[in-house]
Design a protein around this nucleic acid. Structure first.
Lengths: 333, 333
DNA sequence: CATCTTTCTGCAAACGTTTTCAGTACCCAT
DNA sequence: ATGGGTACTGAAAACGTTTGCAGAAAGATG
């Protein structure tokens, strides 16, 4: 590949001058500038990122750690963050982390090797070494969609518990009393949504019944299908179900359909996240929407400010949620 | 950050020796090796990717160009490719390209700057400069999900036209005669699927009627909704519709639902891609499945072999498709 | 005409690695 | 003792950039 020396040779100048032209520094004779630019255009020369990042000791790149099996909410979110970071002048490097300590270590190694300008965690990890690194990382760290008390970095998220409470309360308000719950695992948002579910029941003086709860290992529609099948098999006489994510809700709706029942006539369904497809289902999925665009923008903005040297101060943000009422939840018959 | 010199100093050896230990070369006294490894462990030192890639003139990284607004099929596919590349020992760098020539140029610049070991195109581009670069790129290029005659690189894909023909023929076989089509744009797969639709009609001696065709700008459910609404508004008396992608089909199903009609009783729907969610819709979406796992594996394998120096020979692969019959298509009433 | 800026350019060092080369120390066979 | 491997180690160059420094040329000021 062409290097800056080749360009210098072709233009009959020194590499320093070429560098100055490329980086738009002052003090280069217009005539030379033009001649060099012409050579650059013609050869299609682009400076090596590696060399550049080595001498500048920064890469203009933000690393973003996301779950290997990201769900659609996360998919939308990281696309937004990527776009926003680009407008702030940063590239984005993705690190897919499996839910396995050793793979996380592998990720961590790469993370360290890339001398990033910042790290966005869109994913909670298991390995303590990972958190230990984040706590003392030489670059800013921002947590997105979750919080972690013992980590002193800003975090951007919604009040998951309150949101789940509202979703459940919506079903209660419609007159439901026997409300199933498809619970997720691993991540703190799952626990928070679960406790929102319980809190809503409690404030309506409805006893918590564990026969109404199915815990599933992951967040894909398949798990929602399995979870709902199990719930139906237990015959706890439920008239509604709240799922930890929209994808689980979609699977649950399928299970209800396969059981020969109808949504919402026989069983109401409420999800969480308001992923793109939820509005296009038939019936449309009632769900609680996170302000995904705002979360993504804020995350990128906070990161950008931290990189520019702003203090950690309190850049955290907790956004409000919004119940999106569609057709999948109705009063019980 | 810690550099190899720091490790050398701490272990009381020269950087060369540390390098040899890290890269598991022979000829290092076991005692030294241990001492150095201990320091590496303790400090959490990881070699700089930039410095490494500069001197080795390779980055062990494959770039993958995907559409900015990737659909769910592409999302599944790039996750598979990423996973496979990892097993081959390569990292993956994502380049999101918008459907705009200038943004493609921006991508191209980054692509050049990263001294990649290979490039996988999961996305067709517009700008001729981009193709010009690919044609003479100093690293292997593999096209995935599309082909391009004038580019001498391997490509991995299905026979889009045959697949679309089968999908349409399925509807014809069920007895449909007035079959709508929601056509996509930009990409060659859209044109190929469209010609498959026409070919199926032709072999059943059904006249092509452009009032049955709605062209949409993108591939999200929203476009399927709009396209189907338009088709219904034209009142061409259709009893079935074939959509260029599953996401368009989902939007179309929603439009049918909103019109107070039912799938498949009033209108049958067939999609293309078999994305994850299609199996969980109610009714399940009849669609044509691409062997996504095989496509992803093959793409990564071909890339890996090319990087290892294998000749371009004929590494291309055309995979077969499979019609997945679910409940969204039935005989007309 | 001398001096001082200002504008411009190139040399050389630095960034963090890998690898060639030259060397040292040791062992073994002459 | 001499020679020749073999096992090991470090100095130094190289990769492609940026930038501080020095110096040159030109213009401005006294």
């Amino acid at each position: 590949m062409m290097s800056i020396k080749d360009i210098a040779r072709l233009a009959g100048v020194s590499p320093s001058t070429v560098s100055r032209v490329i980086n738009q520094k002052k003090y280069v004779k217009p005539e030379l500038r033009e001649r060099i630019m012409a050579v650059v255009k013609e050869t299609g020369y682009v400076p090596s990122h590696a060399a550049r990042s080595m001498v500048l000791k920064r890469s203009f790149t933000v690393g973003i750690v996301i779950p290997y099996a990201f769900n659609m909410f996360q998919r939308q979110l990281f696309a937004i963050i990527e776009r926003q970071l680009e407008t702030h002048g940063y590239h984005t490097l993705f690190f897919f982390a499996k839910w396995e300590p050793e793979h996380e270590l592998h990720c961590l190694r790469r993370l360290k090797s890339e001398n990033l300008d910042g790290i966005i965690m869109l994913h909670e990890v298991i390995h303590p070494d990972f958190y230990a690194y984040l706590a003392h990382a030489p670059m800013p760290v921002v947590l997105c969609t979750f919080d972690r008390g013992n980590l002193a970095c800003p975090s951007v998220h919604v009040d998951e518990e309150a949101a789940a409470r509202d979703a459940t309360a919506h079903l209660i308000g419609l007159g439901h009393r026997r409300i199933g719950f498809i619970a997720g695992s691993h991540f703190s948002f799952a626990a928070q949504r679960a406790s929102g579910y319980r809190a809503a029941l409690a404030s309506a003086s409805i006893a918590y019944d564990e026969r109404l709860v199915a815990e599933v290992p992951s967040y894909i529609a398949e798990d929602g299908l399995a979870g709902m099948r199990e719930l139906l098999a237990r015959k706890p006489g439920l008239s509604a179900v709240f799922a930890t994510t929209d994808e689980l809700a979609i699977g649950a709706m399928r299970a209800i359909y396969e059981a020969g029942l109808r949504v919402p006539e026989d069983i109401s369904v409420v999800g969480f996240d308001d992923i793109d497809v939820s509005a296009y289902l038939a019936p449309g999925l009632t769900t609680v929407a996170q302000p995904i665009e705002a979360i993504g923008r804020k995350t990128a903005e906070v990161m950008s400010r931290l990189i520019s040297g702003e203090a950690y101060g309190d850049l955290s943000a907790v956004f409000g949620h919004r119940l999106v009422v569609r057709e999948s939840a109705a009063p019980p018959r």
